[in-house]
């Protein structure tokens, strides 16, 4: 192809020259992302088919054993341990997302109903935990669930736990921690949509005697879909890989896939297996995103 002159936003140049300059600008950033994001990703895939040596070193013999192990097959027969952990991670991420959404709607309506000045204050109050380090927030639950605190005392009084013991590590503590960790991730994007709701539509629905449920599903939900979908993705994906909260509040009793991965790269020093679990998590995340995107589209057109 010849290179005719072209006018590009006031600049007289040729296509080639323009693209050359563009590539020069793309290069540093893209080089970085390819070197430290894309290539490590491929290496992780390759390593998931490698073998762990006797001292934890990598041995380059091709095997699918890591994936078999993840699926539960071992020398001693089939166990559901790892699959259970994967399944549990999906359930925890799903419930966390659901509870966060349910709690976020009233909160968003509440904030949107304030005067402009106090609206910013309430929003800032939601943003602060959003940006507070997760370790600190998980640690804060440690304190609240300690045996001396009223919640643990109440639970002990009701007979859920023996007197004088803390309310962790268990599933309840993990859920508390997870929801408090991810709630702002739903609230903030959702609020951006709630703020723009056309309330005339909601009122029209009410005037036409729609039940509250129909008002929500047909007048509120479609209008808040954009923010809601961002919130759901922002919660579900990191919740799947979360490892701080289950590590601190769930302990060995309530392990999630994040802990399993960490274990392989930490104390067990089994990189190939860790890589295989990471691939499993990756696939689960992709499936989750995919199902969600299909469902999301259907909802949008109702």
């Amino acid at each position: 192809m010849s290179n005719p002159l072209l006018s590009w936003y006031g600049e007289l140049t040729t296509r080639n020259r323009l693209l050359k300059r563009g590539s020069l600008l793309l290069m540093p950033g893209m080089l970085w992302l390819i070197l430290f994001l894309v290539l490590p990703g491929f290496v992780l895939v390759v390593v998931s088919f490698a073998t762990r040596g006797a001292y934890g070193q990598l041995e380059w013999t091709f095997t699918v054993e890591n994936y078999q192990r993840l699926a539960g097959f071992s020398l001693f027969g089939w166990t559901s341990d790892y699959l259970l952990i994967l399944w549990r991670s999906v359930v925890v991420a799903f419930v966390t997302t659901l509870v966060s959404v349910v709690l976020s709607y009233p909160l968003c309506f509440f904030i949107a109903g304030r005067s402009e000045r106090s609206r910013y204050m309430w929003l800032t109050l939601v943003i602060i935990p959003f940006w507070t380090n997760m370790v600190i927030r998980a640690y804060a639950w440690f304190l609240i669930l300690a045996p001396e605190m009223p919640i643990a005392k109440l639970a002990a009084f009701l007979g859920f736990i023996p007197a004088g013991s803390p309310l962790y590590p268990n599933a309840f503590a993990v859920y508390l921690g997870m929801v408090s960790m991810f709630l702002p991730f739903v609230t903030l994007p959702l609020y951006a949509s709630v703020e723009r709701i056309d309330w005339a539509l909601v009122e029209a629905a009410q005037d036409l005697y729609a039940s509250p449920i129909r008002v929500f599903t047909q007048a509120v939900l479609p209008q808040t879909m954009p923010g809601l979908s961002v919130g759901i993705i922002l919660t579900f994906v990191p919740a799947m890989g979360m490892f701080v909260v289950p590590d601190l509040l769930g302990g060995a009793k309530y392990m999630l896939v994040g802990n399993l991965i960490q274990q392989q790269f930490g104390s067990s020093r089994d990189w190939p297996f860790g890589a295989a679990i990471s691939m499993g998590l990756m696939v689960l995340t992709m499936i989750g995103l995919h199902i969600y995107r299909r469902k999301g589209k259907e909802i949008e057109y109702v």
């Binding site: 893209m30 490590p40 990703g41 992780l44 990471s278 998590l281």
Partner: peptide, 25 residues
């Protein structure tokens, strides 16, 4: 370009961490 740019946003950070450990190794 769009896909590469969105990878760190949509994958769980523990996967990026695992990939980096292996790559640095």
């Amino acid at each position: 370009l769009d896909i590469i740019l969105h990878i760190p946003v949509v994958i769980p950070d523990i996967i990026l961490a695992a990939a980096l450990v292996v790559a640095f190794g």
